[in-house]
Each structure stands twice: as structure tokens, then as C-alpha cells.
Nucleic acid binder design. Structure first.
Lengths: 218, 218
DNA sequence: GTATAAAGTTAGTCTTAACTAACATATTAG
DNA sequence: CTAATATGTTAGTTAAGACTAACTTTATAC
């Protein structure tokens, strides 16, 4: 199987290539905090293992195989996060570091069991889709909260930024997954939103935050 | 912190020194399936880190620090095994390999949570003690030989005093870990025991010695 | 009590995955 | 279009942790 190190490269490649489909050596280097020559070297090795398409001076692209392997690691990460939150009582902001380590555990049984105990979830505590055992994920059409109009009722579905800071911020305002939110109004000058949910009414949310909250209309 | 590799050496040293209090390079090498020169090298590094007492051609002994670190890894291993069995529905035969990996996870929180959910167990279902957060374990699971009654059959589990003198004494009488012993009789005046084991029958053991031998009833 | 076997050590090599320094190619700015 | 800058590569080094071959010390057998 793959080394822990290779798995981290795969995961980073997968995460970074979401938008453009490819990644620069530079981006990958910065994301992993590993110097560029090391990354170049590793890419050659991984190309040899048919995990990534590599050509000198060209952007990096995961192969089909690489994409699947990456998805399977992400599957383990997200199942773990969800298990920790749902079954062990951890908070959102605590689970990332633990999942980052557990995702490398080699034990199909362990993750199959988590999945079973969680009732085969398709989305994790951050609302992002969980790849299935074949590395396939279901993408659902979520909207950014910032794109919603006054009067609409939506349900919290995912967060884009998962930094500790941000998650703590959401906790303080009791904003969590599945929360039903009604958009009261939008300030025209700075796009700040005034929303209502649970026992919070007239809560204001900055545009920056609204850009990072994915919601489901219903 | 320590590398995964060092942790495995610590754990093996701890497990193997249960009986004699010290371990030969050869035993350690066989147990880890790592060649002797590699072990010697690692012992020097670990001696430098004050985890093990090392002198050329002498048996290996964990330092106090090394013992504690090892106990903390074993704590994580046993808590994980118990958690997998009790809370996730695994069978005992399935959990060892998983625990072997999870024991290296760096997250005090995770194991504190397992401990909490398991209701602060001091022993696993095999009666083996689980070290606490300070690496201390309770040995109550075992009885002193001196507390056993005539007719009982017991198995040697641990020795309290590990002085050279004492261990040599035990060696001369071929008393070792795992040895099955039957208590024949107890002299009422000085509590000397007459016991039978292997090809020794009618061997007498003083009360002083019986006080230092921990046994498991079976 | 020496000869032989077993255990332990030393020296030198390999692989993985990191690094720096120096060089090469692309991109951007004027 | 060329200069400057940013990005990417090559070459050589390092540390951890494994190995083999050869040597040394300790233990065991006769």
C-alpha cells in the first residue's frame, strides 16, 4: 500500500484540484509546507506508480487511480469526523486533527463499522459529501448563503472554510448543520445579512461568512 | 514526541521485561522482527533520550521515563481494544491489529473520551490492568501467592521485588512467568507454603517469598 | 579449560523523504 | 521584446531506520 506521506500528497492534490482540475507544484508545496524540489521528486515517484500525471513544467493532475485513492482517504477522514461528533460527543472544532491521523489507519473493517453505526451517511459534520467504498461521492446542489434572497428559508448544509477560528465562531452563534434559517433582509451596501433561526432573531452575518456557508433550499 | 518506531521499541521492551525485568537484544530483535544491529543502534539512541539503560553486552532495562512512556502506549492500546469491543461491536479477535495502529494516535482527548465512555475501566476483560493517565496500573487483578489457599491452582503473573537476588532465587527453583502452581498445604505456624509445579513436588516457599509473588487464579 | 556456539557490536550500505544551492523555464511588466 | 520575477528542476546532502558482512565478547559443551 501507500506510505502515510504519499497519502498526504494524494489528499492535498485532491483538495487543491477541486476547482481547476489541476494543481501547480507551487500550490502543492505551500499547502503541504514542503519545499518545491521535494514535491517535484515525489511527483515523479507518484507518476511512476500511476497516481498522478506528471510532465516537467506542466500543472499536476491526478490520474483516475490517484483520484480514487484520494477519495478513499477522504472517505476515512470524513467518516471518522462524523463518528467522533455523532457517537463520541466531540465538537466540530476538535475532530479535524484526530481524523487527520485516523484516516491513515489500514483497516477496512473499522471504517465499514463506523459507516454502519452512522447509518451510511452521505455527508459529514462539515456537510461535505462522504465518498463511498468505491471512491464515488454524491454532489448535491448547495447554494452559498450569500446568494440567497430575503424571505427564503434554507437549511445549513456545509461549511467551506473549516479553520478552528471559523468553527468556533459558528459554535458561538449556535449555527450548526441542519439548522433552519430564514433570511430577513440584506444590507445593500455591504451585503450583510440579517437572519432568524432557533431562538436567535435579527442575528447579522457578514458577507464574508455568508460566502462560506452552503445551504439547501427547501 | 517519539516516532512510531520508537514507540514500538518501547512497547516491546515493556512487554518482554515483564518477566525478568530486563531484556536481551536478541529477544527484542526476535520480537520486533528487526535484526540485532538495528536494535543495538536504536538502543543507543533511546539511551541518549533517557528511555532505556544501555551498556554494551548488558541486558536492556527501561528507565523510569521509558517505563512510563511505554505504559501510556499500552494504555492507549487497551482502551482502544475495549472501546472497539464494547462500543462498536467488534469481536476480541478482530481488535488487536486495529488497536496496534490507533495506539500511536497523538490525541490525549481521544483516549480520555474513550476512557470516559467506558466508565474509567481499570482492567480489560482479560483482567489485564489498564494504565492510568500517569502510566500507573493497578495490580489488584492478581493475588499474592500468600493469600491463596491449599488446593488452589494458580498461574505466575508477576513479581513484586525484582532484585537480582530474588530473581536468581526464583531461577534456581525454576519459577518463571506463566508457571502453573498447585498449593499443597500451608504451615500454620510460619505460613510457609508447600507447592507443586512442573517436576517439582513438595517444594516449600517461605511467607516472605509468597508475599512477593503475584498469581492469577484460573 | 579450551573450543565452539550464541549473542552483541562495528562499519558500511540502502531507501525514504526531507533539505539547500544552483540552474532552467515560464510568466509578467515595462 | 526584453528584463525581471516567479515557478520548476537538477544535483548533492542529511537524518531516520532498516540491512549485511565481519568482528568481538560472553556463554555452553565436552
Amino acid at each position: 500500500m501507500h506510505s502515510l506521506v504519499e497519502e498526504n500528497y494524494l489528499k492535498a492534490l485532491f483538495a487543491l484540484s477541486k476547482d481547476k482540475g489541476s494543481v501547480s507544484v507551487n500550490d502543492l508545496s505551500k499547502h503541504l509546507d514542503i519545499k518545491m524540489p521535494t514535491v517535484t521528486n515525489m511527483m515523479k515517484k507518484m507518476a511512476f506508480k500511476n497516481l498522478v500525471h506528471y510532465q516537467s513544467y506542466k500543472p499536476l493532475k491526478l490520474t483516475k487511480k490517484g483520484k480514487k485513492e484520494a477519495a478513499l482517504i477522504i472517505r476515512k477522514h470524513r467518516l471518522t469526523e462524523m463518528y467522533l461528533v455523532e457517537k463520541m460527543g466531540f465538537g466540530w472544532e476538535e475532530v479535524h486533527n484526530i481524523a487527520e491521523q485516523i484516516e491513515h489507519i489500514k483497516s477496512p473493517k473499522l471504517f465499514a463499522k463506523m459507516e454502519e453505526l452512522l447509518d451510511y451517511p452521505k455527508f459529514d459534520p462539515h456537510g461535505t459529501p462522504i465518498p463511498d467504498i468505491n471512491g464515488e461521492m454524491e454532489w448535491k446542489a448547495f447554494s452559498k448563503l450569500s446568494e440567497c434572497k430575503p424571505g427564503e428559508r434554507v437549511k445549513m448544509a456545509a461549511v467551506i472554510n473549516t479553520s478552528d477560528e471559523f468553527l468556533k465562531f459558528l459554535n458561538r452563534r449556535e449555527i450548526h448543520l441542519g439548522l433552519k434559517i430564514r433570511i430577513e433582509s440584506v444590507e445593500p451596501f455591504d451585503n450583510t445579512m440579517v437572519v432568524k433561526y432557533k431562538n436567535h432573531s435579527g442575528e447579522t452575518i457578514s458577507h464574508t461568512v455568508c460566502e462560506r456557508l452552503l445551504v439547501e433550499k427547501f
